[in-house]
Design a protein around this nucleic acid. Structure first.
Lengths: 254, 254
DNA sequence: CGCCAAATTGACTGGTATCAAGCTACGTGG
DNA sequence: CCACGTAGCTTGATACCAGTCAATTTGGCG
């Protein structure tokens, strides 16, 4: 049994008109994600499971044994520092793996918490290694996923250390929309499934600042709120977001 | 021919007295790093090369084909945004791999620049994959290295988004000392091989702020500068650094 | 010696955090 | 049905940390 995706599927042609620059890659990426999932399903026969918002599939400190792949839904990775500060250090979508951070130390480095109903595939790491020996394509898939995670983390570091608050929020929205588009979901209109506080926590900002920035973006017509909920956001011009960040970052250069 | 390590080796017993809490792990980690290098050397027969400060072993955008392992020396990873902002997104020590970020997209995501004389081992990614099929230990080594990189990046994200300037600098020093200790080098006295500007860039701070924080740390006796150069730093009490960060972070909690 | 990059330090500014006061949506129980 | 409580959100006033600008010192090197 598969869960239906949370958002509505749209044809790639429509996406193309929404995000002209990224469209070609986007379609390819979307197919690659589906392909990878098919490969994992066929080769690993993972244990499937449905989880619900708030469910935790592993906690920091637990002994590592399994990796997980998200077939649908949304997860956040929570890192807790020694003093008890809690921080969102990653967001995971369909096709993403969970648990890579645990391989090195044999212990999970953070909590993985579902943000809505999701289907999780689970495999023993041992089994994965064995399967990799027989299926070269599998190992490439795993490496690709780890590599992507590294690159995303670096992008986050860069955004956090160089961008002012408004540009961070815009980058966040841009990335979110991009992640949806990559998965064949509509990227011009979606529901952020995070509170302002969670967004702020992820971006190193306070919830008030996030709120103020979003209000400003509405005033500047970069986004609009959908009827009925200020978590549902419309992005009339996807490309304009990237431009905003560039202009904002360029200011600091001179 | 091996390069001799830049800093002076000290017996683990001495390290133990410097950093009581981390010592047991530290010795184990140090041996593990050496073991991994021996394995890589034996199984992969990597191409060896000596590079010098400023040398670039790959640039963002170049087609991916090779991974690199640092046998000695120090590298920085530089990410350049579309607008031309340049940012240090990682520092690499002996035993670290370079190029993981390129696997996913087939293109290097950043520049890798040597910060002093270093010995780099290079292998074709194809060859690595083939060798992994025959040597299960190798694949675990690679995964462990990628996993560590993911965890380090997350820690960086967390530090950047939650810690004030002084705590970031202290964390930086603490991590640096820890990296040296992990490699069997003395961690109570070492030379930062970065300018204030580079440190600030890495931490999302200005060079002036870094300088002020270092001066403050000297006043508070957490560090002292060594004779003749303000890049040579002594850390009388390694553990005190961690405490400083904890106290500093705890303030924000209440 | 004299140049130049790196670092330090001070005075001022500005962007975000903090504190505080409503507002809105939604569920619960009377 | 409405009163009420609560969680999430918005908006304003103020404070403070770190950035900016600028002057000076230090150290390295031809």
């Amino acid at each position: 049994m598969h869960l239906t995706a949370a958002s509505i599927e749209v044809p790639f042609t429509q996406l193309r008109s929404m995000a002209p620059a990224a469209s070609a890659d986007t379609a390819a990426t979307g197919q690659r994600i589906a392909e990878r999932l098919r490969l994992i399903e066929a080769v690993l026969a993972p244990k499937r499971r449905i989880v619900h918002a708030g469910d935790v599939i592993y906690r920091a400190g637990e002994v590592f044994s399994h990796l997980h792949v998200l077939n649908s839904g949304l997860f956040k990775l929570l890192s807790v520092s020694t003093e008890g500060r809690e921080q969102v250090v990653g967001l995971k979508f369909r096709g993403d793996w969970l648990g890579f951070g645990a391989i090195a130390k044999g212990v999970y480095a953070c909590d993985a918490v579902a943000m809505d109903t999701a289907e999780v595939w689970t495999v023993r790491y041992d089994d994965l290694l064995r399967a990799c020996a027989e299926h070269p394509a599998l190992i490439e898939t795993v490496h690709e996923a780890m590599s992507s995670e590294i690159v995303r983390d670096r992008d986050a570091i860069m955004a956090m250390s160089t961008l002012p608050a408004d540009a961070r929020v815009v980058t966040f929205l841009h990335n979110w929309a991009g992640a949806l588009a990559d998965r064949g979901l509509r990227a011009d209109q979606f529901s952020l499934r995070l509170t302002r506080a969670e967004i702020g926590n992820y971006l190193g900002l306070t919830l008030e600042t996030v709120s103020r920035v979003l209000s400003k973006l509405v005033r500047e017509q970069l986004i609009t709120f959908n009827a009925r909920s200020r978590r549902d956001i419309c992005i009339p011009d996807f490309h304009a977001l990237a431009l905003f960040v560039q202009r904002r970052a360029a200011k600091d250069l001179h």
